[in-house]
């Protein structure tokens, strides 16, 4: 499996994401790609968009990153059926790029929230969630100021009806509509979520509920 992690000015979870991917893909199989690169490395199986504060969250979270040269290549990759996942700021960037519907607005209480939260696994129909059980409750950290998922009623209905809600909060911390923590694209190959599975990916980090997220990716793509 060949993976890439996109780096923007202000990304700060890019190394964590690379470590989590290297653990399942092996060292040397994860490339770091700078936002000004218009071309991606060849032979990629999956692209990760990391958390952070790309471009200082100026204008709107993820808005400027979503229009950077590398994102044209990422959107092309996804439109050709490539696997892409975005965590936290990565989700905001994917929503701004149009690969995922809706928008992440400021948390309902106007506060930055950094804590572990419980999620229910809603859909196991993706490589990112295939190793979890449907309805299972897992713990992952959140760390965001703009995680309040909003979309129009038709979009919310479509996400639920098409099994495109990957994760929901057990108790919504940020006001997200329908308790949505993570969603999938129509072909289930693009995932965005506000929580950070890469941060609970090793017993040394205090938990391992994020391990299966990355093992699921590797299982699907190594055997593919």
């Amino acid at each position: 499996m060949r993976a890439a992690v996109i780096q923007f000015p202000g990304s700060n979870c890019d190394r964590d994401m690379a470590v989590a991917l290297e653990k399942v893909a092996g060292k040397g199989n994860v490339s770091m790609v700078w936002h000004k690169d218009a071309d991606l490395p060849s032979g990629l199986d999956v692209i990760g968009i990391p958390g952070g504060f790309s471009f200082g969250d100026y204008l709107r979270c993820g808005a400027i990153a979503a229009r950077s040269p590398v994102m044209n290549a990422v959107v092309d990759f996804a439109n050709k059926g490539g696997y892409v996942f975005g965590l936290c700021n990565g989700f905001q960037i994917l929503a701004e790029s149009g690969l995922l519907p809706g928008v992440l607005m400021r948390n309902a209480q106007l506060k930055y929230i950094c804590k572990n939260v419980e999620l229910t696994v809603e859909s196991t129909d993706s490589i990112f969630t295939s190793l979890y059980k449907k309805g299972e409750v897992i713990t992952t950290p959140i760390a965001h100021h703009e995680g309040n998922y909003s979309a129009d009623p038709e979009t919310l209905k479509m996400l639920a009806g098409d099994d495109r809600i990957a994760f929901k909060y057990v108790e919504t911390p940020n006001g997200a509509m329908d308790d949505i923590a993570g969603i999938l694209s129509p072909n289930k190959r693009v995932l965005g979520m506000m929580p950070h599975p890469e941060r609970l990916n090793d017993p040394e980090l205090g938990g391992t509920d994020g391990v299966r997220f990355f093992e699921g990716i590797a299982n699907a793509l190594v055997s593919a």
Partner: peptide, 9 residues
């Protein structure tokens, strides 16, 4: 349309 506003909201 392209950048300054997010016309979803």
């Amino acid at each position: 349309e392209k950048l300054l506003a997010n016309t979803v909201i």
